[in-house]
Simulated scan of single mutants.
Amino acid sequence: MMFRYEVILCWSELDKAFVAEVPELPGCAADGETYQEALHNVELVMQEWIETAKDLGRSVPQPKRRLIYI
């Protein structure tokens, strides 16, 4: 499944892990020992988040597009 949601990925000194979160999907976050692992884990959580929302009859937000000016 291809996701088009914004992912914020950063190092957490407190957790000693990379943390990835998806602001458009409330509560959707994951961590990992590496940048790649955190990104992989959050992709799994996004899929679960969307499937659960659909199963519960809740709406799934459309991904927003961000404009970047250089």
Rank of each mutant, 00 (worst) to 15 (best):
2 M>V: 05
3 F>I: 05
4 R>P: 01
8 I>R: 14
8 I>V: 13
8 I>M: 10
9 L>W: 03
10 C>H: 15
10 C>V: 05
10 C>R: 15
11 W>M: 01
11 W>N: 07
13 E>T: 08
14 L>G: 12
15 D>F: 07
15 D>S: 13
16 K>T: 07
16 K>M: 12
17 A>P: 06
17 A>C: 09
17 A>M: 15
17 A>E: 15
21 E>F: 07
21 E>I: 05
21 E>N: 13
23 P>L: 03
23 P>M: 02
24 E>V: 04
25 L>F: 06
26 P>T: 05
26 P>Y: 07
27 G>K: 02
27 G>H: 11
30 A>R: 02
31 D>G: 11
32 G>M: 07
33 E>W: 05
33 E>F: 08
34 T>A: 06
34 T>R: 10
35 Y>F: 15
39 L>C: 03
41 N>F: 07
42 V>G: 00
42 V>M: 03
43 E>M: 03
43 E>C: 08
45 V>E: 05
47 Q>P: 02
47 Q>K: 14
47 Q>G: 11
50 I>H: 02
50 I>C: 01
53 A>C: 13
53 A>W: 06
54 K>G: 05
55 D>Q: 12
56 L>F: 14
56 L>M: 12
57 G>N: 08
62 Q>K: 14
63 P>M: 02
63 P>V: 00
65 R>I: 08
65 R>L: 12
67 L>H: 11
68 I>T: 13
69 Y>R: 13
69 Y>K: 13
69 Y>Q: 14
70 I>R: 14
